[in-house]
């Protein structure tokens, strides 16, 4: 049974206002609590380790799978291994998300290792949102690892969002693209107080005419620290573009290493990185419309992280 706190967390993490349509698996405090499967999407509990297998039949169109994880107690140390089989020529949305509510003194942590096999011609949109709350001193820690194999002609659109809430995160993302495979990764991160975030994204363009676009936007406030490492590796004829922009404020630190490695003469790789404070002309423009400096700043940051 889901209580009021559970429902609030589900809303924050997966925009769920009620039990979702389609397939879903809700995990709370280290255990699966509710599940639904459909004719085309099956969810099976792993037998050798903690986690689930999500199996999407080929040609499944317009369906979604919600697999939110909520942690509402302190002292939880939850590690899960989820494997996703996205069948050939299917077109699906997978919404993962993890929310931690910690009002205690002890740390609560969830580490999710997600492995995807996106089969030939399939289209996958994967949204992963991280959220944290609670007025306890106990830390909220999330360490997601995402490994994706994108087969011939498949398209993957990844959205990774973490706004405040999480004290420590180490995010690892590894993606391999085959012939004509296409990837777009959008990352949005905001840290404040003493939070620390590390994000490593490694993309290998293995196939002919594979392409990847990575757009990372972050805001670092107060005494927080962000470390980014990107590596776009061109092993074949293909195109890749990394763009990372960070707004740095107060006493924060942002370290960004966008690396591009070409191992093929027809690999075309571009990286752009910029770290800076909010542009004063932007603040002045919004203030000249009647907004206070704080309102102007909030508007600029929320647009930046949209």
């Amino acid at each position: 049974m889901l209580n009021a706190l559970d429902k609030l967390m589900l809303e924050k993490v997966a925009d769920l206002h009620e039990i979702p349509q389609g397939a879903f698996n809700i995990r709370k405090n280290g255990a699966g609590v509710q599940r639904n499967t459909t004719a085309n999407i099956d969810i099976v509990t792993k037998t050798d380790k903690s986690g689930i297998d999500v199996i999407i039949k080929p040609y499944t169109k317009g369906e979604s799978v919600h697999i939110p994880v909520i942690v509402t107690e302190e002292n939880i140390n939850d590690v899960v291994y989820n494997t996703f089989e996205v069948g050939e020529y299917s077109d699906v949305l997978i919404v993962a998300g993890c929310g931690i509510h910690n009002s205690g003194h002890h740390k609560s942590q969830h580490d999710g290792i997600h492995t995807f096999f996106v089969r030939k011609g399939a289209k996958l949109k994967y949204v992963e949102k991280h959220y944290g709350q609670g007025d306890g001193k106990g830390q909220r820690v999330l360490n997601p690892k995402t490994i994706i194999e994108v087969e011939e002609g498949a398209v993957v659109d990844l959205e990774l969002i973490q706004i405040k809430g999480i004290d420590q995160t180490k995010r690892d993302t590894e993606i391999r693209l085959m012939d004509n495979a296409k990837l777009v990764v959008t990352e949005r991160l905001l840290t404040y107080k003493n939070q620390e975030a590390e994000s490593n994204i490694i993309v290998e363009l293995l196939g002919v005419d594979s392409s990847a676009q990575i757009i990372s936007r972050s805001v670092a406030q107060d005494d927080s620290k962000q470390v980014f490492y990107f590596d776009l590796i061109g092993r074949n004829k293909g195109r890749g573009h990394i763009q990372c922009d960070a707004i740095i404020m107060h006493n924060a630190q942002v370290l960004s290493t966008p690396r591009i490695s070409a191992h093929h003469s027809e690999a075309q790789l571009v990286h752009e990185a910029a770290i800076g404070r909010i542009e004063s002309e932007q603040l002045i423009k919004l203030m000249s419309l009647g907004f206070t400096e704080q309102e102007a700043e909030d508007t600029i940051l929320s647009g930046f992280l949209k």
Binding site: R217, D245, E281, K285, G290, E293, I300, S302, F304
Partner: peptide, 24 residues
């Protein structure tokens, strides 16, 4: 008075080189 206050008093200014934004 600062920019916001003057704006609210009814003064407006179109910049020679207007700033661009991300996400607006």
């Amino acid at each position: 008075m600062n920019i916001s206050e003057r704006a609210r008093m009814g003064i407006g200014y179109a910049f020679q080189s207007p700033p661009r934004f991300k996400g607006i």
